[in-house]
């Protein structure tokens, strides 16, 4: 089985170590949730794994393929950045056609959220509409592993629930690593949670560990449990 294996990943800025000897492993059918405070290095970690950000050292492998840059990860890893990335002045139908294989593009062409957007150009879409197009494009790409960096930015609650259900439905074929500022979203989705702090990853088994780590207050945790 082609497992995503990240090892010895180190990154520093101005002599400050952001990511320190990170080890991470994900297999198909697994969703890993990555949480951490602002500036803890979550996005940097995903960009390094994808290949767009340089690391001081890294070893990323999927199956037998060592991923040194974006080209090596073709059809293996795709990355959803925090901000919208679709090109302007092009119809959504064209963007889907160019991005996906025929089989997968037909799924999007028949998706209830996508159908009304097909003949619009990217700049005519709201932030939430852009986001759902991007998420579905990335999920339906041929890649085996999907890195989602704050996928729920600007998305309404009903669409957020739809996306969560959609990812859970699609998870058998791919492995996912997902970050989000709303830890509840990550807890709803992920099979395992990793907390990034001071350059180190720590596995989280229970929510109360996040209080001890200073990520949540007791009030946050109780409020979330009530809802």
């Amino acid at each position: 089985m082609s497992r995503l294996h990240v090892d010895s990943l180190t990154k520093s800025y101005n002599n400050k170590v952001i990511l320190n000897d990170i080890f991470l492993s994900c297999e198909k059918g697994q969703i890993i949730g990555l949480i951490g405070r602002n500036g803890s290095g979550k996005s940097t970690l995903l960009k390094i794994v994808f290949g767009t950000e340089k690391a001081d050292s890294k070893f990323v492998r999927i199956g037998e393929q060592i991923i040194k840059n974006v080209s090596k990860g073709r059809n293996l890893i795709n990355y959803l950045p925090q901000d919208n990335f679709l090109p302007n002045n092009v119809k959504i139908r064209t963007l889907i056609t160019l991005f996906l294989s025929k089989e997968n593009r037909d799924i999007l062409f028949n998706n209830e959220y996508i159908i009304p957007l097909l003949n619009k150009q990217n700049q005519e879409l709201s932030g939430g509409e852009k986001r759902i197009v991007e998420i579905l494009l990335i999920i339906h790409s041929n890649s085996e592993y999907i890195l989602l960096d704050e996928p729920f930015n600007g998305v309404s609650p009903i669409v957020k629930d739809y996306i969560i259900e959609y990812i859970l439905k699609m998870k058998t074929d791919k492995g996912y690593i997902i970050t989000d500022h709303d830890y509840e979203n990550v807890f709803n989705l992920a099979d395992s949670i990793l907390y990034l702090q001071n350059g180190y990853l720590k596995k989280i088994n229970e929510k109360r560990e996040l209080i001890e780590l200073g990520y949540l207050t007791k009030t946050n945790c109780h409020t979330a449990n009530k809802t």
Binding site: F50, G51, V70, S71, Y79, D83, L86, P87, S141
Partner: peptide
């Protein structure tokens, strides 16, 4: 202007140099 739009092409397996 649109630095993020690179990601559309990077996700297709192209890199900046190409």
């Amino acid at each position: 202007k649109n630095k993020n739009q690179y990601y559309y092409y990077l996700n297709l397996g192209l890199n900046n140099i190409e």
